[in-house]
Amino acid sequence: MSTPLYRLKAEFFKTLGHPVRIRVLELLSEREHAVAEMLPEIGVEPSNLSQQLAVLRKMNLVTTRKEGSTVYYSLTSPQVAELLKVARAILTGVLTGQAELLADLQSGQSKPAP
């Protein structure tokens, strides 16, 4: 019996549920990066970054290529970058709505109930 799609989606989103992984994917949305390039950008220990990259590799979200002793990472699909853009747009909308509500609360005004 195959795994239902909703369970696979849940696992996919669990994989995205870590700030270091999201930051890695954001960096890789721009271009491929060597591990050494990512470390100062992400600000974690090398072992932590390596661990998070392994999770992303296991889920087939990133791929590697080796040049000498340097390992370069890139996204397996441009759709990953698109997903991050969509998430940003959703969050922008949510936060804009919250900012408007906060402004209303601070001004002491309330909007009529619908």
Rank of each mutant, 00 (worst) to 15 (best):
S29A: 12
S29C: 13
E30D: 06
R31H: 08
R31D: 13
R31C: 15
R31Y: 08
R31I: 12
R31W: 00
E32W: 00
E32D: 03
E32L: 02
H33S: 00
H33T: 01
A34V: 07
A34K: 10
V35P: 05
V35S: 11
A36R: 13
A36W: 01
A36G: 01
E37S: 08
E37T: 02
E37F: 01
M38K: 11
M38Y: 02
M38N: 03
L39I: 12
P40H: 06
P40T: 05
P40F: 02
E41D: 10
E41R: 06
E41W: 13
E41C: 01
I42R: 11
I42H: 15
G43N: 12
V44C: 00
V44N: 00
E45K: 10
E45S: 15
P46W: 01
P46L: 02
S47D: 11
S47T: 11
N48K: 11
N48P: 00
N48M: 14
N48W: 10
L49K: 07
L49M: 11
L49F: 05
L49I: 12
L49N: 03
S50E: 10
S50D: 01
S50R: 14
S50K: 10
Q51T: 15
Q51W: 15
Q52P: 01
L53V: 01
L53G: 01
L53P: 03
A54I: 01
A54T: 12
A54V: 04
A54F: 13
L56F: 06
L56H: 09
L56I: 03
L56C: 07
L56E: 09
R57N: 14
R57A: 06
R57V: 15
K58L: 05
M59D: 05
M59Q: 15
M59N: 04
N60G: 05
N60M: 06
N60E: 09
N60S: 06
L61D: 14
L61T: 12
L61G: 04
V62I: 15
V62H: 06
V62D: 07
T63E: 06
T63W: 02
T64S: 13
T64A: 07
T64V: 04
T64Y: 14
T64K: 14
R65I: 07
R65H: 14
R65S: 11
R65L: 01
E67L: 09
E67R: 14
G68Q: 06
G68S: 10
G68R: 00
S69P: 04
S69I: 06
S69G: 14
S69F: 09
T70P: 06
T70M: 07
V71L: 05
V71Q: 10
V71E: 13
V71P: 13
V71M: 08
Y72N: 12
Y72A: 12
